[in-house]
Simulated assay, not measured.
Amino acid sequence: MYNLVYKSIANSLTTAQVDEILKESRDFNDKHDITGCLIYHDGFFVQYLEGDAEIVLALFEKIRVDIRHYEVILLSQGNIYSREFDTWSMAYLSDKLPNEAFQYIKLMVSPEFEIPDMSVIPNPTSKRFWLAAKNLLNKIGHDNFN
């Protein structure tokens, strides 16, 4: 099992365009046994992908050249023992969620947040960050976001 995390800047997307990205992602991921989570906040994406290494890396290459975003930066990648988002083809979190817990996620993906090489603060490259995202998804209801 392999995971990859990246961030990027959206190209002035509408809600309908983000919804289309989610639909495309979920359809592709269902067919290729990929799971993960997409966070969209204030024009920025952070995405966690997990699955077969060859498929995840090939998908990331397609993502890198997608014109719907730019400045795609790989944050982390590597082998993992098990999936974090095993029940989501592509979980989704955005600042439209009516939940104050999203403030934590928002802080970690804001454009002002620079990811230091060594950090004690959970950030998009850390397992604690994605566990917090998963916990938030579980609190607001799996059916609403899968």
Rank of each mutant, 00 (worst) to 15 (best):
M1E: 00
Y2N: 01
Y2C: 02
Y6S: 03
K7G: 03
K7N: 10
K7Y: 03
S8C: 01
A10G: 02
N11A: 07
L13H: 13
A16G: 12
Q17L: 06
Q17G: 05
V18W: 09
D19A: 15
I21T: 09
I21N: 09
L22P: 06
K23W: 09
K23S: 12
K23I: 10
S25W: 00
R26L: 05
D27V: 14
F28K: 11
N29Y: 03
D30E: 12
D30H: 08
K31C: 06
H32Y: 02
L38F: 00
I39V: 15
Y40C: 09
Y40H: 10
V46Y: 08
V46L: 10
V46F: 09
V46M: 05
Q47G: 02
Q47M: 05
E50M: 06
G51C: 00
D52I: 04
D52K: 14
A53S: 09
E54D: 13
V56L: 07
V56S: 04
A58D: 13
E61N: 09
R64D: 12
D66N: 07
I67T: 10
R68T: 04
R68G: 04
R68E: 04
H69V: 07
V72M: 02
I73D: 06
L75S: 05
Q77R: 09
I80S: 08
S82M: 12
F85G: 01
T87Y: 13
M90D: 00
Y92G: 01
Y92T: 01
L93S: 02
D95I: 07
D95A: 09
D95G: 11
K96Y: 13
L97H: 06
P98H: 15
P98E: 09
F102C: 03
F102G: 02
Q103C: 10
Q103D: 12
K106M: 15
L107M: 06
L107Q: 10
M108G: 11
S110R: 12
E114R: 11
I115A: 06
I115W: 10
D117T: 14
S119E: 02
I121M: 04
I121W: 12
P122K: 00
P122F: 00
N123P: 07
P124W: 03
P124E: 08
T125R: 14
R128P: 04
W130R: 09
L131F: 12
A132L: 14
A132R: 15
K134V: 06
L136N: 04
L136W: 13
L136S: 08
N138K: 13
N138E: 14
I140K: 07
G141Y: 08
G141S: 07
H142D: 03
D143F: 11
F145C: 05
N146T: 11
N146Y: 06
